[in-house]
Amino acid sequence: MASLAEGQIGVPIVCENKPGASGALAFSYVARRSADGYTIGHAPVEIAIVRSLGYADIGPSDVSLICLVSKTAPALVVQADSPWQSFQEFIEAAREGAGRIVMANSGIGSIWHFNILLMEQGTGARFTHLPYGGSTPALVSVIGGHADAAVAGVGEVVSHVKAGKLRALAVFDETRSGVLSEVPTTHEMGFPIGAPAWSGFFGPGGMAEQRVTLLAKAFKTAFGTSEWAKLCRERGMEALFLDKDEFGAFAMDQQRFFESEIPKLVRLESSE
């Protein structure tokens, strides 16, 4: 995105990775910079989550949101030669098995882990949770037959599904995914569950209106290019543009959702 937007604003965009604490370190770092628009950050879904997890006291209302550029739906996968052919069969087995099905996740408190808890809450299924440090090892453990199933982003599972190593049973979304169009969605099967990952940009709180608009315009132009469309297709992301007001409303909505759901989900898990 940076290399696509660069041409629009006439200054180079230098990307700096600041990993740590689900992105909380990077959010806090950007929020502390001067609000001149020269330091902005990438705002993934975690910006609406980290406060509920207690990693950092920061949320969408503390920063200047610029725009949202993509969304990634979660997908439920099992090993290609597992007995479960459909989401319904899988859920049925998980209800009866009372935790006998082992569900790998990409880390406690990660967005994909929440989706597993939402699935338990919404369908009455119960799993044994097997936490890994990221989606890749979680998916590898399903491919290797060590765990029965996993939930990860559509873009993360699609290559293994296409290679015949994993079978996708459901995409947690309202509409079907572009790269896994043959896989049914939870909503169409009568389970309105799912919390997508998303990706946008933000600056320190109190950025001047016109600077936000300028940056949003540059990102919007970059968003419209065929390169971005191609990248989204390859990574299994849904290209979706929300301007700062829409993004602001969406992000606050997400934060309220996680604030109300996380305590419930944590209780659900500890009661298992």
Partner: peptide, 18 residues
């Protein structure tokens, strides 16, 4: 903590969470 995500020996600093 790799299984429960509970912070250990971080002395309240988010820099040590990972």
């Amino acid at each position: 903590d790799p299984m429960t995500a509970y912070p250990r020996y971080t002395f309240g600093m988010s820099e040590f969470l990972d």
